[in-house]
Deep mutational scan, measured.
Amino acid sequence: QTQEFDNEEEARKAEKELRKENRRVTVTQENGRWRVTWD
């Protein structure tokens, strides 16, 4: 699953929550947008 964010702060917040659920999370930056991908 993927979700896009406008800034790193929001993306990192989402990453932190997903990691609490023991998910594999990848955060990438593309064209000024932050993308959080998880399984």
Rank of each mutant, 00 (worst) to 15 (best):
E8N: 02
E15F: 08
G32N: 06
V27G: 00
T28A: 08
K13E: 11
V25P: 09
E8F: 04
E15H: 04
T28E: 07
E8P: 04
R19Y: 06
D39W: 14
T2P: 03
K13V: 07
E15V: 11
G32K: 04
N22K: 10
R12E: 04
T2Q: 09
K13R: 13
R24N: 15
G32I: 02
E15I: 09
T2L: 06
E9L: 12
T28Q: 06
E4T: 12
V25D: 00
R23V: 14
E15L: 04
R12C: 05
N22L: 08
Q29S: 10
A11R: 00
K16V: 13
E15D: 02
V27T: 03
E4H: 08
K20F: 09
W38N: 02
R33I: 14
E15Y: 09
T28S: 10
V25G: 04
E30D: 09
V36M: 02
R12Q: 06
R19K: 13
R35F: 15
T26H: 11
L18R: 07
N31H: 06
E21V: 10
D39I: 13
E10N: 03
R19H: 03
N22M: 09
R23F: 13
T37K: 09
E8K: 02
E30N: 07
N7D: 11
E17T: 08
E9C: 09
N7Q: 04
R23E: 12
K20Q: 13
Q29L: 09
E8D: 01
A11K: 01
G32T: 05
R23D: 12
T37P: 01
D39T: 10
R12T: 04
N31Y: 04
E17L: 11
F5Q: 00
E10K: 06
R24K: 07
K13Q: 09
E30M: 10
N31G: 15
E9M: 12
V36K: 00
R24H: 15
N7I: 04
R12N: 03
D6M: 10
E10R: 04
K16T: 09
W38T: 05
W38P: 03
W34E: 00
E15T: 05
T2C: 08
R19E: 10
K20N: 12
V36A: 02
E10Q: 08
R24Y: 15
E21A: 05
D39S: 13
Q1T: 13
K13I: 13
T26E: 14
R23Q: 14
W38E: 04
D6T: 05
K20V: 07
A14N: 04
T37I: 10
D6Y: 06
E21N: 13
E17F: 08
A11S: 03
E21F: 13
G32D: 08
T37V: 09
R33H: 03
T37F: 09
W34H: 01
F5S: 00
V25E: 00
L18A: 10
V27N: 01
V25T: 03
G32L: 05
T2Y: 14
R33W: 06
R35N: 06
R19F: 09
N22T: 06
N22V: 03
K16E: 10
T37M: 05
T37D: 06
E9W: 14
E17G: 06
W38V: 10
V36S: 00
Q29D: 07
L18E: 03
N7P: 00
A14I: 12
A11P: 00
T26A: 07
R33N: 08
A11D: 00
K13T: 11
K20M: 11
N31V: 03
T37S: 12
V36Q: 01
R24S: 07
V25Y: 04
R23G: 12
T28P: 01
T37C: 05
E9G: 11
K16S: 10
T28H: 04
E30I: 12
V36Y: 00
T2F: 15
T2H: 06
A14W: 15
R24W: 12
Q1E: 12
E17W: 11
R23T: 13
V27E: 00
K20E: 08
K16L: 13
R12M: 06
E15P: 01
R35H: 11
F5D: 00
Q1R: 10
E21Y: 11
V27K: 01
R12K: 09
V36W: 00
V27P: 01
E8A: 03
D39Q: 09
R12H: 06
T26R: 08
E4K: 03
Q29H: 14
A11C: 12
Q3F: 15
A11N: 00
R19W: 13
R35L: 15
E21P: 06
Q1G: 12
Q29V: 13
E30G: 02
Q3P: 03
R12D: 03
E8M: 04
V25R: 00
R23A: 15
G32H: 04
R24F: 15
E21I: 08
R23S: 12
W34Y: 03
F5M: 02
E10S: 10
K20T: 10
F5P: 01
R24A: 13
V36D: 00
E10D: 14
Q29M: 13
N7V: 06
R24D: 13
Q3S: 07
K16D: 09
W34S: 00
D6R: 05
E30P: 02
V27F: 03
V36E: 01
E9V: 10
Q29N: 13
R33L: 11
Q3D: 06
A14K: 15
R24M: 10
Q1H: 13
L18Y: 07
N7C: 13
G32S: 05
